[in-house]
Simulated assay, not measured.
Amino acid sequence: MNKPIGTLMVLAALAAGGVRAADMQAVTAEGEARASESGAAQNRVAGLDDESARLEAEYRQLLRTVDGLETYNRVLGEQVAAQESERQDMAASLDNAARLERRLVPLMDRMIERLDTFIDEDLPFQVGARHAAVDQLRQRLGDPDAPVADTLRRVFEAYAGEAAHGRSLDSWRGTLELDGERRDVNLLRVGRVALMYRTLDGEALGAWDPGAGQWRSLDRGEYRRAFDMAMKIADKQAAPELIRVPLFGAREVTP
């Protein structure tokens, strides 16, 4: 009877030892599982840290971008305001220019007509060329594509050119009708004081009489030397000096 009892006790002890081994395996497995979960959690935390750092970097970049855009918009707004001010100034200038043009066109028309009349009343030298210049001014005044400022400049230049004739000495060859006959002559203009002629053969000498509106003969002996000297001065062959010219009564003409 004693042997079986001992055997049962050994079996019981072995059974108890088996239970403790199973518990240890379970505990070990659970520890390993928890350790694995802890590592995964740490990996997730590390990933979250990286993501957070990336998002923070993006946020800071966005802040810099927004700041740059605000600066750009401010500068652009200032430029737009300056351009608008300039546009308003230009609009005002154009309006003033339009009003000025409306006043200048009639003025230039009167100036051109006065210049044309002046040429008719002046000494009869280079009349065709001078009237042609006036006709060109009329055409420009009537041309809608011609700038008003440029036309006004040309009108002033024409007046200045006519005024310059009164301070110059000039000679040229031309043809005159004398005593019902066409004659080739040398013409001499002394400012607007005198306009003289001499036939190419030297036989006839005369001057324009503004009061009578015709050519008058002059005494060759009295004016021959003066005419010769004036011709040399006009042709730059002699130094300027006082010369004698005929004077007739004439009405005053001002361009």
Rank of each mutant, 00 (worst) to 15 (best):
L55G: 05
T65N: 12
R54E: 07
V80Q: 01
E70G: 11
A57S: 03
G68E: 07
S52H: 13
A82S: 13
R54Y: 08
E58M: 06
D50Y: 13
R74T: 14
R54L: 00
E70A: 14
Q79C: 07
E58S: 03
D67L: 06
L69T: 12
V66F: 04
N73Y: 09
Y72W: 12
V80Y: 07
Y72C: 04
A57G: 03
L48Y: 14
S52A: 14
T71G: 04
R54C: 03
Y59A: 12
R64Y: 11
Q61E: 14
Q79E: 10
T71D: 08
Q61G: 07
E58R: 05
V75R: 14
Y59E: 09
V66D: 12
D67Y: 06
V75G: 03
N73F: 06
A53N: 06
G68M: 07
S52W: 12
A53K: 05
G77Y: 05
E56Q: 01
V66Q: 11
Y59W: 05
Q79I: 08
R64N: 12
R64M: 12
R54K: 10
A82N: 10
N73Q: 11
G68S: 14
T65A: 15
L63P: 07
D49Y: 12
D49S: 13
E56Y: 09
R54Q: 08
A57D: 04
E56S: 01
E51I: 02
Y72E: 14
G68C: 03
D67E: 15
T71Y: 01
Y59G: 11
L48H: 12
Y72Q: 14
R60T: 12
N73R: 14
A82T: 10
D67A: 11
R64D: 15
L63D: 15
L62F: 10
L63I: 09
E78I: 00
E56T: 06
T65M: 08
E51P: 00
L48Q: 15
R64P: 07
E70Y: 10
L69I: 11
D49P: 04
D49R: 10
T71H: 02
R60G: 00
A82W: 04
G68Y: 01
V80C: 04
D50R: 15
V80E: 06
R64H: 11
E78F: 06
